[in-house]
C-alpha cells in the first residue's frame, strides 16, 4: 500500500496543512519509509472475536465515520442568512471597544 503524491495532497487537505511542491517528494518518501515498517502488523493473528475487555470498554461494532471530505464546513443555514455582512467567508462584526482606536476611544 504505497503512498502516492495524490495521497499526500489528499491527506494534507483533510488535515488542513499546506504542503509545498518542494516538500511533497520528501513527504511521500518519508511516509512510505515509515509505513513499510507497519506492514508487519498485517501478518499478526489477533484472534478476531476474542475481546476480553469489559463490555463498557469495548468499541462499538462499527464506528460511525464521516466521509473523507475537505469541503466547506457544513452548516444548518447558509452563512448569509444570519450574518449581517461577510467577506471571504468571514463574518464582519463591529469593532469592539476593547480594540483600542485612539480616535474613537478618546473621551
Amino acid at each position: 500500500m504505497a503512498v502516492t503524491h495524490d495521497d499526500v495532497r489528499h491527506i494534507a487537505e483533510l488535515a488542513r496543512l499546506g504542503v509545498s511542491p518542494e516538500r511533497l517528494d520528501d513527504l511521500v518518501r518519508e511516509l512510505n519509509g515509515i509505513l513499510m515498517h507497519m506492514e508487519v502488523l498485517a501478518q499478526v493473528d489477533t484472534g478476531a472475536g476474542e475481546d476480553e475487555s469489559p463490555p463498557f470498554d469495548r468499541p462499538p461494532a462499527s464506528t460511525p465515520l464521516r466521509a473523507d471530505s475537505s469541503g466547506p464546513i457544513p452548516m444548518l443555514l447558509p452563512l448569509e442568512s444570519f450574518a449581517p455582512s461577510t467577506r471571504d467567508g468571514f463574518i464582519i462584526v463591529p469593532r469592539l471597544a476593547s480594540h483600542d482606536d485612539p480616535i474613537e476611544s478618546a473621551p
Partner: peptide, 22 residues
C-alpha cells in the same frame, strides 16, 4: 507535520481497518 499526515492517513477511508484497527 509528518505525524499529523501519518495519523490522518491511517484514519482515512480504505486504510482505517488495515492500520488503525489492526
Amino acid at each position: 507535520t509528518r505525524r499529523v499526515l501519518l495519523g490522518t492517513y491511517v484514519l482515512s477511508a480504505g486504510y482505517y481497518d488495515a492500520y488503525y484497527k489492526k
